[in-house]
Simulated scan of single mutants.
Amino acid sequence: MPGQEPRRGLDPVRVAEVMVRPAAGRGPGRRGSGYRVGLRWVLTAAHVVRDAEGGTAGVRFEADRAAEWTAPARVILASDKADVALLEITGSVPQGVHAAATGSPSYGTLPDTDVVLPCGAMGFPRFKLREDRMRLLDDGSASQYRDSCHATGMTSVLSNRREGTLELAVTPPESDSEPDRSPWEGMSGAAVWHDGTLVGLVSAHHRADGLGRLAAVRVDRWYELLTGAELALLHENAGLPASAGRLVRFPPADTTVAVPVTLAGLHDDLPLGELAGLVTALTTLPTVRDRTTLALVLSSIDPVVAAMSPRMPALRPDLFGILRTCLSYPGTLDQLLEAIRLLEGDSAGVARMDQEAVELSRRHRRSDGRR
């Protein structure tokens, strides 16, 4: 098995854009995402490369950056049952890629218990489609490209048990302008990470779940759904452990989200960087993203905060201003988070907010030298 580097985590230079041309008469070309798990091996979702012309696809890395490279790849494994595929890069690989570390990632399984855990994935969804006005087509129109999306959020491990997938709660796109096409189209095949460990691949966006939910096939399910020969291919080429018992495991006691803590003792001059994690978590919540409900939240706490909080057009700067104002009035930040909990109820987004609050409290205690 290729040498492993434990907890390597998401490396953006390994994130692949997978480009597929279906066999004749089987629909238009399509895009997906993937992750390079060895010098010449790329994991993606099986449905991304289904009916690929000649059993091949194109993979592109670092698009429109100095280190961009593209190569053909052949499909050597595609399991519809497990929705996982392994591609072998058949074209030349740049020397710089040869020189870099090429070991496989760590693979893991999440506890099948009542926990909510942070996760992330990087891919190329349709809502990231952009116009490049510096590159014009023959008819004078601007060419288009897909930018990357680093989707971060939480997974409620007990969701989607019947389907056998992980439910990822992530920041949704602002709109869904194409009723016949999901804005997340193209994200399939993106590797899903928890604590530096690959735990799944994005497999679907179920419209009924809303714009902020994705489903990901779990790595541990591969051992149930793949044949012995298919598992052997992944073991030899992608570094997948030979048995499920060798996957990285996360004990529930170490990963449960802590109960809410008080932030009343935080200094009012904290750098903005200290608040960034909490602000990011807040931006995923519908209560906060809606200006009307956010105003309701502010009106429910100290009126001085509602009156003095800067109201900026962009949500993220506005939230930084609100939090800094709350820090000037001890206890009001706790009031703010509690009001949000009441309106949101139990959700993966609230769990992430509470986790960021816990981490902020811990960093503050360390900086003050308290135990």
Rank of each mutant, 00 (worst) to 15 (best):
V13D: 15
V13E: 15
V13Q: 15
V13K: 12
R14F: 01
R14N: 07
R14Q: 06
V15P: 07
V15W: 05
V15E: 08
V15T: 10
A16G: 08
E17M: 13
E17L: 15
E17P: 00
V18P: 00
M19K: 15
M19P: 00
V20Y: 12
R21S: 15
P22S: 11
P22Y: 08
A23V: 05
A23E: 15
A23F: 00
A24K: 09
A24W: 05
A24E: 14
G25V: 08
G25W: 07
G25F: 02
R26T: 10
R26P: 01
R26L: 14
G27V: 02
G27N: 09
G27F: 02
G27I: 03
P28N: 12
P28L: 10
P28W: 03
G29V: 00
G29I: 01
G29R: 14
G29K: 12
R31K: 15
R31A: 09
R31P: 00
G32C: 11
G32P: 07
S33Y: 03
G34N: 09
G34K: 10
G34R: 09
G34S: 11
G34I: 01
G34W: 02
G34D: 06
R36V: 03
R36A: 15
R36K: 14
V37W: 00
V37Q: 03
G38E: 13
G38L: 11
G38P: 04
G38K: 07
G38A: 15
L39D: 13
L39Y: 04
L39Q: 12
R40W: 03
V42T: 06
V42W: 11
V42S: 12
T44R: 14
A45F: 02
A45E: 06
H47M: 09
H47E: 11
H47F: 05
H47R: 06
V48Q: 02
V48R: 01
V48K: 05
V48F: 01
V48C: 04
V49C: 10
V49E: 13
V49N: 11
V49K: 14
V49L: 13
R50D: 14
R50V: 05
A52S: 14
A52I: 00
E53L: 04
E53H: 08
E53F: 00
E53D: 13
G54C: 09
G54K: 08
